[in-house]
Amino acid sequence: MTQNKEIIVHVITNFAGVGGAEMMLARLIQKTERDFEHVIISLIKTSEVYQSTLERCKSYYALDWNGVNSLQVIFRLRKLLSQFSPKSVQCWMYHANILTSISMMGLKHPPKIFWGIHHSLSSPKEESLSTKTALVVSKFLARKPVGIIYCAHSSLTQHRQFGFQNQNSTVIPNGVFLDNFKLNTKLHQPLVVGFAGRYHTAKGYPYLFETMAKLKDEPIIFKIVGSGASLNNDKVKTLFEKYQLDAAKVQLLDQISDMPNFYQSIDVFLMTSITEGFPNVLVEAMASGVPCISTDVGDAKYIVDNNEYIVKARDSHGLRNAILKYYNLSENEKIELKEKSREKIEKKFSIDWVAMQYIKFWET
């Protein structure tokens, strides 16, 4: 007779984007579906992007939350959680943390609620009004959950300084399926530098273009992917024309679906962000054997683990020098750096290890 699996309910603010929290939830469910029955409750909506993940679940729900209907959503959430009576509820992102904690108030036998924070607080003043409000409310509710999982060491430190108090707080980084990323030891001629990130203030696009402008006379090709990374985006077009870049050397590829193949097409990965929590792209690139040059934001330094290729944020001159430093390495040195990049990810960021940390935390 087959023993019933334990149910884990995941409450996420929105299961429709392609952010780090969403991707980590999808990977965690795929890795642990043999051990648990998963239920996903998205406060806003779900997306076909995660259809294969949703099909792995016992059930899933989208509550169409829009802020105005918060009370209605809280009662619906309370009803669903009472219906499933899970031992543990894992929340993902601020608003899910808040609404789940409120929905469970007053229950005689509430489940163990674990918050998940996948956000950097390096620039609190620049956050949206919605996020600022969520932060204030979260600070007062932070003692309520059994524990809080942060995706980055920097995020844990920042939130504690902001006033989040919960003695059972830990860092569990985002993990990757190593089999999805093959070691790339190929060296391209000319050198190909890759960048991946949607057009957003946090991603540091002005500094990306400044860096490329400083290298436009070098035999280097840049491949830029991400939603909005196109000349159809007026802001990107303005930057492109301002620095008189060559379309043959700066390839704007917009959003793509096959990131593993993208990593195979580049030699080194560049991240110019001015704020991050846990930058998944660095882990994916390094899992592919692609060395990374990054600004010192979030847990970038912890992931890259090579100070020679970590530059302070907004420093296009430093990014230029780091790229040239890699460019001037010998072929053997470049290949050795590729192999070491993959080894670092195998040791610290495999989905097997990460999933085990989640399971252990749920047992606290």
Score class of each variant (00 low, 15 high):
223 K>I: 09
188 H>C: 01
133 T>H: 15
48 E>C: 05
315 D>F: 03
276 E>Q: 05
114 F>Q: 06
120 S>N: 12
261 N>R: 08
167 Q>N: 06
79 K>G: 09
77 L>F: 09
58 K>C: 02
216 K>L: 10
117 I>T: 10
193 V>C: 05
314 R>I: 03
129 L>P: 12
252 L>K: 04
340 K>V: 03
193 V>A: 08
249 K>V: 08
78 R>E: 09
275 T>R: 13
68 V>E: 08
273 S>K: 05
23 M>I: 15
221 I>R: 08
330 S>V: 10
354 V>P: 05
362 W>A: 03
310 I>S: 00
46 T>D: 14
167 Q>R: 01
341 S>N: 01
42 S>C: 10
264 Q>F: 04
96 A>P: 05
235 K>Y: 07
114 F>E: 04
77 L>D: 04
272 T>Y: 02
351 I>K: 08
233 N>D: 13
272 T>A: 01
183 L>R: 05
65 W>A: 11
336 E>C: 01
180 N>R: 13
112 K>I: 05
349 F>G: 07
2 T>M: 08
29 I>C: 12
332 N>Q: 11
288 S>P: 03
83 Q>G: 06
306 N>Y: 01
19 G>L: 10
99 L>I: 04
118 H>A: 06
250 V>T: 09
45 K>C: 15
264 Q>C: 07
38 H>R: 14
337 L>W: 04
198 R>A: 13
244 Q>T: 10
157 T>C: 11
261 N>I: 06
13 T>H: 02
66 N>I: 11
222 F>L: 03
228 G>F: 00
52 S>T: 14
269 F>V: 03
302 Y>W: 08
173 P>L: 00
115 W>C: 09
156 L>C: 07
169 S>W: 02
334 K>H: 06
166 N>F: 04
255 Q>D: 10
205 Y>K: 09
87 K>N: 14
207 Y>G: 05
77 L>E: 06
142 A>W: 00
236 V>E: 05
250 V>G: 06
88 S>A: 15
246 D>I: 11
210 E>W: 08
298 G>I: 01
309 Y>S: 00
186 K>Y: 06
90 Q>K: 10
109 H>R: 13
363 E>I: 03
75 F>H: 13
103 S>H: 07
141 L>T: 12
318 G>P: 06
27 R>E: 12
45 K>V: 13
66 N>P: 08
200 H>G: 01
240 F>P: 02
2 T>H: 11
232 N>S: 10
19 G>E: 10
128 S>Y: 12
145 P>M: 06
137 V>F: 12
111 P>T: 07
162 F>Q: 14
19 G>C: 08
300 A>Y: 01
134 A>Y: 15
314 R>D: 07
192 V>A: 00
